[in-house]
Design a protein around this nucleic acid. Structure first.
Length: 577
RNA sequence: GCCGGUUUAGCUCAGCUGGUAGAGCAUCUGAUUUGUAAUCAGAGGGUCGUUGGUUCAAGUCCGACAACCGGCACCA
């Protein structure tokens, strides 16, 4: 009988636990769910699992599967369960929790392994595949995901219904790895890192920086058209500012700070908001000034934990396309609707049509600013704004910031990892701390409502995602070198230079490859470095004032008049509206 | 930060149980003057991540630190 893949994966997790129990004896079992592409199981044992163990474990699993062991479910009382799991501290913790929550306790036996588990499982291991799973890696993971707890060993396994699917998955992983932002950064000569001097900070090369600037230029153009005002605030400010904002207390160890010769402590800004607050605070604001949009492409520095850094995706220094929207309570919902629509539209220009949003709501247990009434209203406003935009979203309960609820937008990298990019956050904290006010219709002072908003989020991260999603095959308007001109031979160098000059005069970024190499060789190299259009010129072209084009990913050739080509390029590199 | 792995030429990687470094591509030089994914020949290039130690001798063994990769935690 055939089962859904989740049940197969979950059952295989039990098989692996049974295999590990058999092979390594004294093991404390934590838990092992099915996940995308497979499953994992967390173990606590003296034995340190290494890649050398994998084949052995896999073999034991196959033997167990072959033995046609049954998965037998039984409901047990709390006392029975406590007896069964007396030497399994993690299971004990679970069963006490389940019991406290009023849930029935269910156990599953498979061979010598008994697990506290709701199931469901396959009936017998004969229903499980023997050749379509593979242990991928072992990694540390904290018990219950809390870093104050003990770190367990998590064994990750890729598992599918058939060997063919596993093979396809592995092939896809390999293909995805070839689109890694770090690899593309090197192959396309976009950027590099200096681990010794600046771990987690990007050295942008000319081509990478062109893309970077284009991203900013595009957002800037769109923002200005939408009535945003762009400001710029200092990178280094006195520690007292961060005490006022509350960031020193909450994120002190993640700030870069240093003492000046006269003994003052300054911080490199980890975010742009406090600067924005100070700008809003200048002069007297009227309700007629609201909503007020203050945007800033702020370069921020955060001393992120070393283990969390990852290429362009997670860096210590990055630029946010930040903006702060000051409005009245009545305007709040409409402003959120507007921002979400804005983000949705911007993303569509990069080919991200399906955007994944999470509404992060308050955590009841934790300290937070603002009354329940305000939170109700704030969460309600964000939720209804999402609904009014027809955006699908999940609710991430308890994920709100202490100062307010937020909507986070996630994009996936080539390996399927999820990264937060755009965000809309309601902040009830900073206007208060900076004592911001505007004069209302009634002539009285009122506290403005403030929204933080980033669309791309971190330019670095967004570019990483963009590179991986396109495999480096960027749309022409973002390409640092949409066209490279190369002559057939030495004899046509002069004409090639002429073509380059004309393109450059027309405002088209253009590269040249004037090396005395065979065309085949240059085509290969330019293709590997993701040149969108290669313009080859030889005798014919020089005589006819034409260029012969080859587009990335296609073998077709097309010869067109140089004038026409220049016009076409001028159009093609225009930013989307 | 935590767990595991890795770190050898610009890049990708080889160097078995210790005897003082190798390949391909790239670079440079020369020849070739090329019509759409690698022309041929020659040459140069490495404090083997850093730092302690063991040893007559360390890329190789042991320790510390760092960075990178994969997870976990964190992510204003």
């Amino acid at each position: 009988m055939s089962y859904p893949i989740e049940i197969i994966r979950h059952s295989l997790a039990h098989v692996m636990a049974a295999a590990i129990k058999k092979l390594y004896g004294d093991v404390k079992f934590a838990g092992g769910p099915a996940i995308e592409n497979g499953f994992y199981y967390d173990f606590d044992t003296e034995h340190k699992f290494t890649p050398e163990d994998f084949a052995k474990i896999e073999k034991e699993m196959r033997d167990l599967i072959k033995s046609n062991g049954r998965f037998e479910q039984k409901n047990v009382s709390l006392d029975e369960a406590k007896k069964i799991f007396a030497d399994q501290p993690y299971k004990m913790e679970w069963l006490n929790e389940y019991d406290a929550a009023g849930e029935a306790l269910s156990i599953y036996n498979f061979r010598d392994f008994t697990d506290l588990c709701r199931g469901p499982h396959v009936e017998s291991s004969k229903d499980l595949p023997r050749d379509s799973f593979k242990i991928r890696t072992v990694a540390g993971a904290y018990w219950k995901g809390d870093s104050r707890n003990k770190m367990l060993q998590r064994v990750y396994v890729d598992a599918f219904a058939t060997a063919k699917e596993l093979e396809e998955f592995e092939k896809m992983q390999e293909e995805a790895a070839s689109r890694d932002n770090r690899k593309l950064g090197r192959d396309m000569d976009l950027f590099h890192f200096e681990p010794e001097y600046a771990p987690g900070a990007v050295f942008w090369h000319d081509k990478g920086y062109k893309i970077y600037r284009r991203l900013i230029d595009y957002v800037r153009m769109r923002q200005e058209r939408a009535g945003y005002l762009e400001i710029s605030t200092p990178s280094v400010m006195d520690k007292s500012l961060w005490e006022t904002s509350g960031h020193w207390a909450k994120y002190g160890e993640h700030n870069y700070s240093g003492k000046t010769q006269d003994g003052k402590v300054f911080c490199v800004k980890p975010m742009s908001c406090p600067g924005g607050m100070l700008v809003f605070g200048q002069g007297i604001k009227s309700y007629k000034d609201l909503p007020l949009y203050l945007a800033e492409f702020g370069k921020v520095n955060r001393y992120e934990a070393a283990g969390g850094l990852s290429g362009l995706m997670r860096v210590r220094e990055f630029t946010q396309d930040d903006a702060h929207i000051f409005c009245t309570e009545d305007q709040l919902e409409a402003e959120v609707v507007k921002v979400l629509r804005f983000i949705k539209d911007i993303y569509s220009k990069f080919g991200f049509d399906k955007i994944s949003m999470k509404l992060a709501t308050r955590k009841e247990s934790e300290f937070r600013i603002g009354s329940d009434e305000i939170w109700d209203k704030a969460e309600g406003a964000l939720k209804s704004a999402l609904e009014k935009n027809g955006i699908e979203f999940e609710i991430a309960e308890g994920d709100a910031a202490f100062y307010g609820p937020k909507i986070d937008n996630y994009l996936k990298d080539s390996m399927g990892r999820v990264w937060q990019c755009g965000t809309v956050q309601l902040d009830m904290n900073l206007p208060e701390r900076f004592d911001l006010s505007y004069i209302g219709e009634d002539g009285e002072k009122h506290r403005p409502i403030m929204l933080h908003r980033a669309m791309l989020g971190s330019i670095e991260r967004f570019m990483g995602i963009l590179l991986e999603s396109t495999g480096g095959n960027l749309p022409l308007w973002l390409s640092p070198e949409p066209v490279v001109v190369t002559p057939i031979s030495e004899k046509f160098k002069e004409y090639a230079k002429e073509v380059i000059e004309q393109l450059r005069d027309a405002g088209v970024y253009v590269g040249s490859d004037l090396r005395d190499e065979k065309v085949n060789y240059k085509i290969r190299e330019l293709s590997l470095s993701k040149t969108p259009i290669i313009a080859v010129v030889g005798e014919k072209e020089m005589a006819d004032k034409t260029v012969t084009l080859r587009h990335l990913g296609s073998e077709k050739q097309e010869t067109i008049k140089l004038d026409l080509f220049i016009d076409q390029m001028k159009q093609a590199i225009k930013m989307p509206e």
